[in-house]
Design a protein around this nucleic acid. Sequence first.
RNA 1: UGCCCUAUGGUGUAGUGGUAGCACGUCAGCCUUUGGAGCUGUAAGCCCUGGUUCGAACCCAGGUAGGGCAGCCA
Length: 558
Amino acid sequence: MSIPDNSASDFIRNIISNDINSGKFDSSIITRFPPEPNGYLHIGHAKSICLNFGVANEYGGICHLRFDDTNPTREDVEYVESIKTDVKWLGYDWQDHLYFASDYFDQLYDFAVVLIEKGLAYVDSLSADDIRRYRGTLTEPGQDSPYRDRSIEDNLALFEQMKKGQFEDGTHVLRAKIDMASPNLNLRDPTLYRIRKMPHHRTGDIWKIYPMYDFAHSLSDSIEGVTHSLCTLEFEDHRPLYDWFLDVLQVHRSQQIEFARLNLSNTVMSKRMLRDLVENRHVSGWDDPRMPTISGLRRRGYTPEAIRMFCHEIGIAKRDTEVESALLEHCLRTNLNLTAPRVMGVIDPVKVVLINYPEDLVEEFDAVNNPEDLSMGTRKVPFSRELFIEREDFMETPSSKFFRLAPGKEVRLRAAYYITCVDVIKNVDGLITEIHCTYDPDSRGGSSLDGRRVRGTLHWVSAKHAIKAEIRLYGDLFVDTTDGDNGGLLTDRLNPHSLTVMTECYVEPSLAESSQGVTYQFERQGYFCLDSVDSTPGQLVFNRTVSLRDSWSKVNKS
RNA sequence: UGCCCUAUGGUGUAGUGGUAGCACGUCAGCCUUUGGAGCUGUAAGCCCUGGUUCGAACCCAGGUAGGGCAGCCA
């Protein structure tokens, strides 16, 4: 085990470094990522994954993947598989440390029996309502259940009958006997087991009782020898209970440490709300490219590297905060700028006719695949008399700061020729249908011998060679997320413009061989990838992953 | 009005008694065959009030503000 000397400092890593220095744990560091298989992972989980696996890697330890599958009413194998896929995709490896809380059901049951034998747990036969009433309130102490003083023998017998399925759901629970007057509600005789006569996705119908989170989680950590159990802030009040189980049962002591969960601007992170979006068809599914789920981000074209970088950049602390999505986009652009192959695609086309270019001539230009990485080579791009350019790259009456195409103005077509606008053709509605230009044969390749300055460079495609495609542009899912995940109608804050579908787009022919899982840069536009669900070889569908930074829009506004 | 936690530029995060730093974002300039990328610079911060100290973001006291907790959910 080693201590990284210049690792990013955060309070958790500081604690772990101190623990290692003081020899608190005799094993190497063991952490765990403990999802409940009841939904898809989102970027908030990525923060926890990067922390837990990251810490383990840095200190030469290991990180377990453990499914917290103690509630058969909400869990499913579908989620187990998606979670494993997502963790792997993010680049982490649990090796052979894949565990399930349900693997420990026998041991947990035995622990419960020990608690009963020690007089520290009892079977309560109050109804759920009565248990709530007896619990007291935030400001008033609770009262002991009339069943609190059952004999150990009775408790043992009853608990065994619960296990055997001799009682109906809700008739009894097993509770820890701690303190009904504790100011910490979690210590007012918390429930340990409830009866659920429901098949479990892994244990089938052998169990009729299932352990509660606090009991199962604390002891699962202990069973696995976890040294540092990292969880989110809402479990802070549970730590005394977490520790109580370990103390009274005298088992391996893991240390729970809480950190703030991730909140991201203009989106929501709670599984419940994400599920609402899916079930109420506000999005196409858990992997809708607008979703903050790992599967949504993947389909959108995000890379694991970008997400890991983001999780590193946001840091770890205890204050409750909201990170601007600009930081996520920054991490994405940083990664994609270095790796994405460049291509040209026109999203909102207008036709350009080069009136002095031969009718049937077709030339091919070599275009650089990535100016940031010349080893990625070049590709051929066909050029002909009729082209498409972006409609917004032409302005009939431009401002002085507009460097693109306008009547009488000369621009460069990326990797091709200089062209000058000589005429504008409109339809009866005044819509521009064609822009007539001349090209300068001496500017072949995009530069001229006379060295004259041409400030604007436009992307383009050859009309007869281009492939027609659909491009989906995404915006924030929500207009405003103040108040976070609580209160207010979620749907009131949905951004009605979160999806724009452009169906008349043209992309360069090299994209006929574009492959799934690659995010391209459409030059001057942004990053795009093939949609993994809806794109077919005959009808390409691209998702805009993120736009390029656009300083023109600022100039234009001012 | 119980218990627990938190408070550093617009945002996120370092700094644990000795000149408050980094990143994102902002703005300006340079550069550019992507108005991308890159480079340079700018503005902007210790919640408040006391106390201890030669010296406090840091220690102490008291406030204020925000968050969490009353599932047989996790």
